[in-house]
């Protein structure tokens, strides 16, 4: 997140290198499924990297895309939105609504040259502690490969 000076285009910033770059991933977890899934991962002592920072929301259907944009603009390297599987939403259909909003957002950011994989929408049920840990592992790996969020290279955020 530290930007000392505006780097020239294509210049490799020191923390760009895979390996010593530790990405920061923000996750919006639905209270009923994914947050409980994350709890289960904890209860089952499934280790995953500490790069992931969760925010509990009531439902993925309550995740305003503005939150995701804000997180990315503030310098998050990836954002996860995770909720109940289709059909299992605690609030009947929140996850379907989220899917639309996230699809729109992804399309926009894709057009802005931001890798589509920086935003992930995942269905993780409360019993899928393993899936939760796997998802985080995978995201960290993938984000490391993609490198830091290019927005961070810009001054304004």
């Amino acid at each position: 997140m530290v930007t000392e000076a505006q780097p020239k285009e294509n210049e490799v910033v020191s923390d760009d290198k895979e390996g010593d770059f530790e990405p920061k991933i923000i996750g919006f977890l639905c209270n009923w499924c994914s947050y409980t899934g994350a709890d289960l991962a904890g209860v089952s002592r499934l280790q995953y990297p500490p790069n992931f920072i969760p925010i509990r929301v009531m439902c993925t259907g309550a995740v305003d895309p503005v939150y995701v944009i804000k997180a990315l603009l503030e310098g998050a390297d990836s954002v996860l939105v995770a909720g109940c599987h289709p059909g299992d939403c605690h609030y009947l259909s929140g996850n379907f609504k989220a899917r639309r909003r996230i699809a729109i957002l992804k399309k926009l950011l894709e057009n802005l040259g931001l890798e589509e994989r920086r935003i992930r929408l995942e269905w993780i049920s409360a019993s899928e502690g393993q899936k939760f840990a796997d998802t985080v592992n995978e995201m960290v790996k993938e984000t490391k490969k993609m490198g830091p969020n290019p927005i961070k290279k810009e001054w304004d955020i």
Binding site: L40, V43, C84, D88, S127, G129
Partner: peptide, 13 residues
């Protein structure tokens, strides 16, 4: 049980 698929299979907790 919260029958909305939210089971962490850890009933004690």
């Amino acid at each position: 049980c919260k029958s909305d698929g939210c089971c962490m299979d850890y009933c004690r907790e």
